[in-house]
């Protein structure tokens, strides 16, 4: 079971010093990477080499390195979070790559996610969508006992399936339209499945969709790429639920 060591790989990576910089690909060699290392540990080795050569290391977002914070956001060999399913970039391991391979790394590419530097993008647009209605308006205190409203097991499980979204943006980066529908649908569905979310359901669907459109995300054409690349396997059926919620809200207007 011991992992072998890749003697040499080539990393072709997007370098862009600032939002206004034009940007270009650069290729680096990385030697002696254990296949037991994670993809981001390989990036650490590359950056360590660059720093030792006096060069600027590659900027990329990452934090928890266990697939839950949603910070990491690399497009690897043409796939969001790289060549494995139901994981984030930080959970990807070098076993998925072979000796002498050239690995291409790009940032998320979407008009609503401008590049900050190299592989780092600005996902503030997601924040703004959630601020427009992704919550239940309750203040701290003065709420009923947790068992006052029973919630069916299936409803609760479905709400949890949708609530598992980590807000990484892979759905947007993968979508040919750069649509944020899966992201918005996940939040709308999560709250639509729970009694606590009902009071504001209409306003929520209306406001979040309007905000999404305002921020320049594209429309959904049901290609399903978002579902395929989502590290948390959020189902596209949530988009159907969002459409229904939105329609109901519009009819009620």
């Amino acid at each position: 079971m011991a992992d072998i060591t890749l003697k040499k790989i080539y990393v072709k990576v997007w370098r862009q010093n600032s939002p206004k910089d034009k940007g270009r690909f650069e290729t680096y060699e990385v030697e002696n990477v254990s296949q037991g290392s994670s993809f981001l540990e390989m990036m650490d080795i590359l950056n360590d080499n660059l720093v030792r050569e006096g060069k600027d290391p590659i900027a990329f977002d990452h934090d928890c390195r266990e697939g839950i914070c949603g910070m990491c956001s690399l497009y690897i060999n043409g796939k969001a979070h790289g060549p494995d399913t139901e994981i984030t970039t930080c959970q990807l391991h070098m076993r998925k790559f072979s000796e002498g391979e050239t690995i291409t790394i790009e940032p998320w590419r979407a008009g609503s996610f401008p590049v900050i530097k190299d592989l780092m993008v600005d996902r503030t647009a997601f924040e703004e969508i959630l601020q427009s209605g992704g919550f239940v308006s309750v203040n701290t205190g003065g709420v009923p006992d947790g068992n006052t409203i029973p919630i069916g097991y299936e409803d609760s499980e479905e709400a949890m399936d949708a609530a598992a979204c980590i807000g990484c943006g892979a759905c947007v980066a993968t979508c040919k339209n750069s649509s944020a529908m899966l992201f918005v649908a996940a939040k709308v569905s999560h709250l639509a499945k729970l009694p606590q979310g009902q009071v504001e359901a209409k306003r929520r669907a209306r406001n979040m969709v309007a905000k999404m459109d305002e921020l320049g995300f594209g429309g959904c054409t049901n290609t399903g790429a978002c579902e395929a690349e989502c590290p948390k396997a959020i189902s596209i059926s949530n988009i159907a639920r969002l459409n229904r919620e939105y329609l109901c809200a519009k009819i009620a207007e």
């Binding site: 239940v136 309750v138 701290t140 409203i149 029973p150 097991y153 609760s156 499980e157």
Partner: peptide, 18 residues
């Protein structure tokens, strides 16, 4: 209680209780 009111999807029993 607070988290339930916010819509945190805690694990539930079939009868709907936490």
């Amino acid at each position: 209680d607070q988290c339930v009111a916010q819509g945190v999807p805690f694990g539930r029993e079939y009868g709907g209780t936490l």
